[in-house]
Simulated scan of single mutants.
Amino acid sequence: MKTKSLRHSFVKYIPETLEDGVLYISIDYCTAAHKCVCGCGNKVITPITPTDWELTFNGEAITLSPSIGNWSFDCQSHYWVKNSEIQWAGKWSRYEIDEGRRNDQIKKQIHFSKVDNLADVSAENEKNITRQGHSQGFWRKLFQRFGF
Score class of each variant (00 low, 15 high):
79 Y>T: 03
51 T>P: 05
131 R>I: 09
80 W>Y: 05
108 K>H: 03
1 M>K: 05
68 I>C: 08
140 R>C: 04
114 K>A: 12
64 L>P: 04
68 I>A: 06
65 S>D: 11
78 H>Q: 11
123 A>S: 11
79 Y>I: 06
90 G>K: 04
11 V>M: 07
147 G>Y: 00
128 N>E: 06
76 Q>C: 15
129 I>L: 08
8 H>K: 09
97 I>D: 07
130 T>F: 06
98 D>L: 15
130 T>W: 03
22 V>D: 03
18 L>P: 03
102 R>W: 14
117 N>C: 11
131 R>D: 06
86 I>H: 04
24 Y>L: 02
6 L>R: 02
103 N>Q: 14
105 Q>I: 03
121 V>W: 10
15 P>Q: 01
3 T>C: 13
20 D>W: 01
45 I>A: 01
148 F>P: 00
134 H>W: 09
6 L>Y: 03
99 E>D: 15
15 P>H: 02
130 T>A: 13
82 K>W: 01
33 A>V: 03
118 L>A: 15
135 S>C: 04
106 I>R: 08
78 H>G: 09
1 M>H: 09
148 F>C: 00
121 V>K: 12
9 S>L: 05
60 E>T: 12
22 V>L: 02
116 D>N: 07
105 Q>V: 10
42 N>T: 11
29 Y>Q: 10
86 I>T: 04
81 V>P: 02
58 N>A: 12
109 Q>P: 00
99 E>P: 05
138 F>K: 02
95 Y>Q: 12
141 K>D: 09
72 S>M: 13
34 H>V: 03
135 S>N: 09
85 E>P: 00
110 I>F: 10
30 C>W: 00
49 T>V: 07
27 I>W: 02
48 I>H: 05
82 K>E: 09
96 E>S: 15
35 K>W: 02
70 N>M: 14
3 T>I: 15
126 E>Q: 06
54 E>W: 10
86 I>F: 08
146 F>A: 01
95 Y>D: 12
3 T>D: 10
28 D>S: 08
83 N>Y: 05
103 N>E: 14
131 R>E: 10
68 I>K: 08
83 N>R: 08
75 C>G: 15
48 I>F: 02
125 N>E: 11
43 K>W: 10
147 G>N: 00
36 C>G: 10
33 A>T: 05
59 G>M: 11
117 N>M: 15
76 Q>Y: 04
123 A>H: 07
94 R>D: 10
145 R>G: 06
47 P>T: 06
39 G>W: 03
84 S>K: 01
72 S>Q: 12
23 L>P: 00
119 A>E: 11
142 L>D: 01
134 H>F: 12
60 E>W: 08
28 D>I: 01
75 C>L: 13
110 I>K: 14
141 K>S: 07
29 Y>T: 11
111 H>D: 11
96 E>V: 07
34 H>Q: 08
48 I>S: 06
22 V>Q: 05
70 N>G: 14
140 R>L: 07
63 T>M: 06
90 G>Q: 09
123 A>N: 06
146 F>E: 01
148 F>W: 05
50 P>H: 11
34 H>N: 01
129 I>N: 04
22 V>Y: 04
38 C>A: 07
54 E>Q: 13
107 K>E: 14
44 V>S: 08
57 F>R: 07
146 F>D: 00
50 P>I: 15
19 E>M: 10
122 S>Q: 13
79 Y>K: 06
130 T>H: 09
